[in-house]
Amino acid sequence: MKSLKPSKRAIPFLTLALSLLIVVALGTTQALAAWKPTRPIEFVIMAGKGGGADRIARLMQKIVTQNKWSPQPLVPINKKGGSGAEAMLYLLSKKGNPHVILVTLNSFFTTPALRKLPVNYTKLTPVYRLAMDTFLLWVNTKSGIKNMDDFVKAVKAKKGKWTMGGTGKMQEDQLVTNMLMQAYGLKGMITYVPFRGGGTVAKNLAGGHVDSTVNNPSEGLPHYPGKMKPIAALTPERIPAFKDVPTFKELGQPQLVYFMQRSINAPGGIPKDALAWYTDLFNKLCNSKEWKDYTSSKALNRACLSGAPLGKFFADEDVKHKKLLMGMGLLKN
């Protein structure tokens, strides 16, 4: 019975010690997992107000705000200069700052390579990929072109005067144009006319000022089916919104696949917990009903990816874009 006495006293002590331990343990785990933004998050956009990347960023802002997923507001900031160079250099200067994120286009790969910038994807922290935008080859409905054979014939008939509208030079649209010319032996027969944004490109096709474009579905939709006709898709499978449009793969050109990735990057060297918080945030966003609705109505591929696979995806895309640029003679080894 004597031996019980200290043990009796030990019970409250042990309980206290244990509870303290638990509190401390809980506290530390909480401290580990509990990074939260403490000031407004700068949401840097590599393009001007009103463009495709800007729209996506503002849609994300809307979804995050409406669902109250972030204790601090997302503040979109447009840094459009130098085809994305300004935005990427800005992120480089914000190394270690977890309150800045960047929404990217494919100029994320092409601009650093072409302009020899001191920054590329390896200097930043990949956070999340949300979608892959698709490309279609479009012509004006008045042209009477029905399929790829008609298209090739029409281009050849114009004897080098065929025009293709697209956004910016040495960017996505021109890469796609070049892929097309190579695949169909049309080198030197298509003149590429650069415009400022995808919407303007589509309008110039609808108005008959250029002969063809490689617009994203969302850009072509306002003029479809009245004024613009899609000929073929640069996707591995048919796009659900354009079920009648064949893919280039079906037409015997399986290498003609091109996507525009929409992903989120943070500056290099941000705390692990911050990365975890953002990953969680964009995971919720990517799986939200709003995002699913948007991607299906605008014929984008919803493509949620994070962590190591995202790193690998970036590395592959980087190699792919360098090869494309080299193929065009714009980049040397």
Binding site: K49, G50, R55, L59, G199, A206, H223
Partner: peptide, 18 residues
């Protein structure tokens, strides 16, 4: 037409998409 006639309507057009 889905094309902006001014910089402000470009932003409003973005809102339409949102």
């Amino acid at each position: 037409l889905g094309i902006p006639g001014s910089p402000t309507t470009a932003v409003m057009l973005g809102a339409l998409f949102v």
